[in-house]
Design a protein around this nucleic acid. Structure first.
Lengths: 343, 343
DNA sequence: GTCCGTGTCGAAAACGTTATCGATAACGAT
DNA sequence: ATCGTTATCGATAACGTTTTCGACACGGAC
């Protein structure tokens, strides 16, 4: 039906009565072709609707003017970054290619390296990798990592100040009077998750609250893996009165689980998230959370990449500040429940 | 620095002491290679960290197991669609490539066709195009269009019921008692914009309100282009008491412009949007809007595309229902302003 | 000892493009 | 009339794959 054969540079050459070399020249505006033939070729190109194949051009040449963004998926975090990158790239003459592996084997550890190897030979001039778990390796295009596994080392990186953000979040809860503050971690293999737990602990200590290992659980930054740990936490004999979740997706799930368990938020349980994805303001109650400047992180990452491509020397690591946004999911703890609650 | 040359199939062949043909066979698990050589080649592949080049493979073969999504940019609408597509593709063995042209020339009319031609030769097995303005054309891969220019004709399409959605939105305003209801249109070249105006007019008629051409303006579905028309509308001698904007981005901008002009929303001006992008709930006041099932639209589009690829016959056009979500940006009109307002 | 099948492998073409470089024609200068 | 210069153009190699097909060796069967 719609499947007509692709029109190639050869077709253009044939119907224009010139060689493929000449067609290539007029397309790329190289020197050495007369005005007359140039016009004729252009006419044929327009008539046939010819477009040069990105694939073939990539295979042959070295520059493609395309930069790739490797994302583990299109969850809110990646999406916000993409917007920042996209806005920044709009001012350049590069194009954007977002690539997300989806086969189970690819999603396993090492997906970044595999994808990168597949694309950089050479479909893309450079890449931005979101949440890479492997970051060393020898790539042969410039790469900037956002929120990487290993923290600032090796590749140029952009991330947010997770430790301080987590410290602020936990301190906020402590300041409201909470003493039993639980922590739901993120993927333990991620530097950001490690730093957030660090900030959580530091805040506890600074508030004079002893660290209780029983109040921390580990998730994986998304809803399904948070379920079990959340149930455990909320059905503890000595239930925590507050919860700090390592990212918004987990925190949002926490709100849901609390509701399923008959707990009121924030009266029975205060909840703080991390990221400030758009969704966090939509849940009921709207989430108190730590804002990561995702848009800006994306834009900065692109800027670093462009500098790399241009050969400009720059600081290899950029850490952007976070800020606490207080909404309605946090409140002072209820007074210790009397055996027979009065109405 | 990190720029080491790419390791090719030739390198593997050389160090393994076999031919490139043999390497290719073991990689693709073709018949005709002994267990011994296969093992040796696999060892070398692992040692050298070889990955087959997507570009070269695409150029040669016909299938790539990659489907492309062509988006005009990463604004909220495209992003929500992407999530739906991504979730659906995760259950298949395809991979996702989101492509967004960014050079000014590409963003001009016809970007879709150009991009498609560039990618389908053949980087991708099929494509989903978001908001294509040109939709006929002879592509040589299956394509599904979301919210296209020309409406359901030609290419398989997925869209939302814009006419009914707009009708409901306008009727909601009329039901609140508004008589002077302005309309800020979207890109006039888009079928969806046309249908929304149609719904707006039908609702006016059904409510017995005469259509006033002076109360409709045209925008382009995004903030910058909405500014002028919005100012005109809001500074009219006989100011409208309600505004229906053809998409949320315009509506959100309308809220801002109203505030700049000293108008209170919804007391002085009720505003309704279209799309229900996540941001619409974040503005102050939260936007009353028409929900498009964007996530579902993306998923359905992918499903159609997969059927096309598999050669399954299907209905070529899918129109999903919309629903009105009432939030705080709409209210009954204030009583006709008395010359000296009382407090 | 010859013949034929079977199993294993490699040479080479092809995909669509760009870059290099040699060939040809036109033309002014001697 | 011959030469050198310039402008224009085309043949061809190369990019990294996959696929086709022929070559070859090794068996066993006659």
């Amino acid at each position: 039906m719609q499947t007509s054969a692709r029109v190639t540079i050869g077709d253009v050459a044939r119907t224009a009565g010139v060689s493929v070399a000449t067609v290539s020249k007029v397309i790329n505006e190289r020197y050495g072709v007369s005005a007359a033939t140039s016009a004729k070729v252009k006419a044929v190109v327009a008539e046939l609707g010819y477009e040069t194949s990105l694939v073939a051009r990539s295979l042959r040449g070295s520059r493609t003017n395309v930069i790739g963004v490797l994302v583990p998926g299109f969850e809110p975090f990646s999406t916000e970054l993409l917007k920042g990158i996209s806005d920044a790239v709009a001012e350049t003459d590069y194009e954007l290619l977002a690539y997300s592996p989806s086969t189970p084997s690819d999603r396993a550890v090492g997906w970044e390296h595999r994808s990168l190897a597949r694309l950089s030979g050479t479909l893309i001039d450079g890449a931005i990798m979101v949440t890479p778990t492997i970051v060393g390796a020898d790539t042969h295009v410039p790469v900037v990592a956002i929120d990487p596994h290993t923290g600032p080392q090796g590749l140029p990186t952009v991330d947010a100040d997770s430790a301080t953000g987590a410290f602020d979040a936990t301190t906020h809860l402590a300041g409201l009077g909470h003493r039993r503050i639980a922590y739901l971690g993120g993927r333990p293999d991620l530097e950001s998750a490690r730093l957030r737990e660090e900030g959580y602990r530091a805040a506890l200590e600074s508030a004079g609250i002893p660290f209780d290992p029983d109040l921390t659980r580990v998730g994986a930054y998304h809803a399904p893996t948070a379920d079990g740990p959340l149930h455990e936490l909320m059905t503890l004999a000595d239930r925590p009165t507050a919860l700090f979740a390592a990212n918004d997706l987990s925190a949002i799930r926490a709100v849901e689980v609390a509701r399923e368990l008959g707990l009121r938020v924030p009266e029975d349980l205060s909840i703080v998230g991390f990221d400030n994805v758009p969704e966090s303001a939509l849940v009921d109650p709207p989430l108190t959370t730590v804002q990561q400047p995702m848009h800006q992180m994306g834009a900065e990452a692109l800027r670093m990449l462009l500098d790399l491509l241009a050969g400009v020397e720059r600081d290899a690591h950029l850490r952007l500040p976070t800020s606490l946004v207080v909404r309605a999911s946090t409140a002072p703890p209820a007074p210790p429940a009397p055996p027979a609650p009065s109405l």
